[in-house]
Design a protein around this nucleic acid. Structure first.
Lengths: 223, 223, 223, 223
DNA sequence: AATGAATGAGGATTCATTCAT
DNA sequence: AATGAATGAATCCTCATTCAT
């Protein structure tokens, strides 16, 4: 993973070590973190079904049984991972967008940040996508969390006059979908190509839409 | 599935009764079609990994061994399904968009058609999405096919002055992603809510973007 | 097992082969019977928990997976075994008792038959006993089935004046317990010692009780 | 357990804190007792195989490792429990039978005491029964101990003319089996029903047997 | 073309026990 | 005396695929 939010933080429902889900000792916390890290690599590379617990523990350098001290099942660690990643991704983007002067700048910065992040965390992309078929509720939570925040930001921007009025919820999901597919196409499938043109092209679409200027009525809206 | 393009047609790389891929007899063709239909239901409801061949044959009313007369593996029938669905979806949308007067009208009609179709074929949505983790090349082919056609249409529209100039490839993937996520959110997850507002909201975004009219410079316009 | 009621009869709820639980073909029925026979040996010798499915299939000469064509779990075959054995035991005893002229003769013959049977089917004894801790309802059914029949016989005997009046239910359970423990002690634990004296001693107790004749009032009952 | 003979007493082959088998300190003795009590509950409710050390320590409020300070294995604590219970049961019955004027009264009182005790210690019943499959020697010892005492009492009673002559060993095992099954049926399975009729019915059988008075020959009596 | 019994590799999970602190 | 993290052998069960009719 990375350094922003260490895996030693608690995410998901661990078992074994203690009722609250958190290991009691430092050693325990470290082992749990190593397992999550190993699971991210394993599931990212092999996928959920091909991924094996035995391989996760091997990567983490612990015995098979140790896995079940911290997670009650393969699915549980997978869920913990998705929740963790949601936290990660949102944190990363939020930080990058923090000092954008207005919504449109934020859109651009956010899109760029997302694509960068996706490129650096290919495993994350795969795991989140696959969660749809492994733990659908975790997947929904992941994107619903995003969409809710996004929607609020768009609403506020409308109120401030930074963007045109419009259905914030639909816009949020539209822009998330747009970003995810660009991430898939240009960050995951073609990780070498420059992202600049992609961000430019997509931002142009987001900012101005497809309609030619000639067709535009200065006051907005059709006559 | 549905009535538009019966599964008894050959799609994908089916093997079995005959070299060309299609069973010779009517009976054979019907059995194959029943298996595909059963597989669509099974994979749509249970997913690829949870879905079982035994259950597919049970649904189709044939013995287990019969499956392998028509398909050489679980993956093969899944691929056949994805290919079939690609064909279906594109056909449906193409028909709905056929007589749109210009690109923007086509965008609106296409989005609407896609969401309608998704709502009526929830299984299809799931199967296509999951193909990403089962037969990645089929998944890529599916969306690349879409994107290529889309890109050409957008390019032509630019040439005709129906839409603003811009990166057609990036736009195509952006708009596909946007549609897919709206389909997931409003057709699959919430199949009851009215689609009208969703189409309106999304089309407004596609047509005009987020930028307020006040801020608009008559792009490349009069001096 | 033995020849009285072949294991190819259906007992318990098989899965796999068909919804009713019965294999469709002769070959299937034979395999299922071989598995039950192997399970009786394995569980009888090693006990339920030590007994291994792999060993059962090895004894039966089939592959591991074949087990699950006929039984859905280790517990299920165990239950099937208990049910089968109930049938077996009752059949054996019923046959031996069939032509006893009256209830007391039947008691003697039944006790003798039970002890003989227990000695020849040590595995059965263990399996039935252990079912108490593996499938308690199967165990209860086993003995409740016995007790119900026994009770009816005792009642009828009272009506006919063959035995003294008394609580048939309590007597049935008392006599079953008496027999089971004698079986354990003299058939299972000490399989070589002659059974004659045991039957004599126990029957004397059953027939006449402990009370000395001197204390007896001719008409029965205490004054 | 109960208050008659606290588990903090040493019974069985406990090891741990000290060579003699008993912890030296008061704290140690208390912990050991808590573990035994927890084990009785756990094994009684879940059975030996389903019962888990982790759950025993949880119930006892100590850490897993602490278990092995007092007992060297799961089986050992189980054996300790069986031994303890043997002591308990015999003590209870002996006390209740102590002032019976003759053997037949003692039989009645003993049966009654046993059923009462079984009803109050359902866990005990289960644990003793299951020991057959966990620690067969402990089980044999348990019942052989009973049977030996019982046999001696019966022999003495015969000598005193309190009961008819007869094979004391066979009678002892018969009466134990009778009691155990009545305990199972009327104390464990149906703990609400009144015990009076059960005791009456069984004692009537024990005292006088099944044979009608009419059929009685003044056994060896006057010519 | 169809059947259904048989296969067996593969993997998740359990839990008594050990050990370093 | 007590802790709780770590161990890893042991096994049930699944299910896509094959094969003999």
């Amino acid at each position: 993973m990375n350094q922003h939010s260490p895996l030693s933080q608690n995410v998901g429902t661990a078992s074994g070590a203690d009722e609250s889900g958190l290991p009691k000792t430092r050693r325990g916390r470290e082992t749990r973190a190593r397992l999550l890290e190993a699971a991210a690599a394993e599931f990212g590379e092999r996928g959920y079904h091909e991924g094996a617990i035995a391989e996760i523990t091997r990567r983490a350098g612990v015995a098979m049984g140790t896995f079940y001290v911290y997670f009650s099942s393969k699915e549980e660690i997978f869920r913990a991972l998705v929740a963790h990643m949601s936290h990660e991704t949102r944190g990363y983007i939020a930080a990058k967008v923090a000092d954008a002067p207005d919504r449109l700048s934020a859109e651009r910065a956010g899109l760029q940040a997302f694509l960068e992040f996706a490129r650096q965390h290919t495993n994350l992309y795969r795991i989140v996508m696959e969660s749809q078929f492994v733990a659908e509720d975790a997947y929904r939570d992941y994107y619903t969390g995003f969409a809710d925040g996004y929607r609020r930001n768009l609403q506020r921007a409308v109120e401030r006059g930074e963007i045109r009025a419009g259905d914030a919820e639909v816009r949020a999901w539209s822009l998330i979908g747009l970003s995810v597919f660009l991430g898939m196409r240009y960050a995951v499938w073609e990780p070498q190509a420059p992202l600049g043109p992609v961000v430019d092209g997509a931002f142009d679409l987001i900012e101005r839409g497809l309609m030619p200027a000639a067709a535009m009525v200065p006051s907005g809206g059709r006559p």
